[in-house]
Amino acid sequence: MKWMNPVIITEKLTKRFGDFVAANELTFEVNQGEIFGFLGANGAGKTTAMRMLCGLLAPSSGKATIAGFDIYDQAKQIKTKIGYMSQKFSLYDDLTVSENIRFYAGIYGMDIKQIKQKTGVLLEELELQSEAKTLVSALPLGWKQKLAFSVSIVHDPSIVFLDEPTGGVDPVTRRQFWDLIHYASNRGVTVFVTTHYMDEAEYCNRVSIMVDGVIAALDSPAQLKQQYTATNMEDVFYELARHAKRKDD
């Protein structure tokens, strides 16, 4: 069952830069197939935390395992088990849709047969068959984002990290994007997502809100709203982050 199996486990995970504690004793678990919203004010330490979890940044202290691998000395194994997509990083504009898919499938070590099969499946899912030979630069932003997401999970990772995946996307496409997230989650992929759209926080199974380097709240959106007697997640966020001391990265 998807809720029984934690794929991200952290315990007092901390990152210091000199005297500055960017992320302070983060302790939480994320279960397989869960959509986990990772929110926080600017400068709260979100990016630092996410980099540690992706194996890009060594923690100063604390423990964490990602998909069963230790983040201190199994970063290599972790990288085969995670996918990553951000608003900034997306696809190669000067390659076609199918070339992009083949490239990413290729760097994750899939063989030619798998790549071919996977490319077909992806194009079908995204209804992009007719655009397979189109350069990515010619696609509308919304399609690019959807394609980027599909490419980030092309190697069937246990966890996908999405860093503000819907920034600047129109409201309809944004919702279509979340449909994709839900499908992936139903297939058992854990989705770890940051966003500045507070209505998107409501689509998550659980949400954590970081303030000043610590996790100030972590629960389901419904529970959080109840706890802070708020009508929506934006008010919950505002209530928590309003008094943040740290406003600088």
Partner: peptide, 10 residues
């Protein structure tokens, strides 16, 4: 306000 958190936006 793009990319800025809710508090700063308000």
């Amino acid at each position: 306000t793009t990319g800025v958190d809710v508090v700063s936006r308000r």
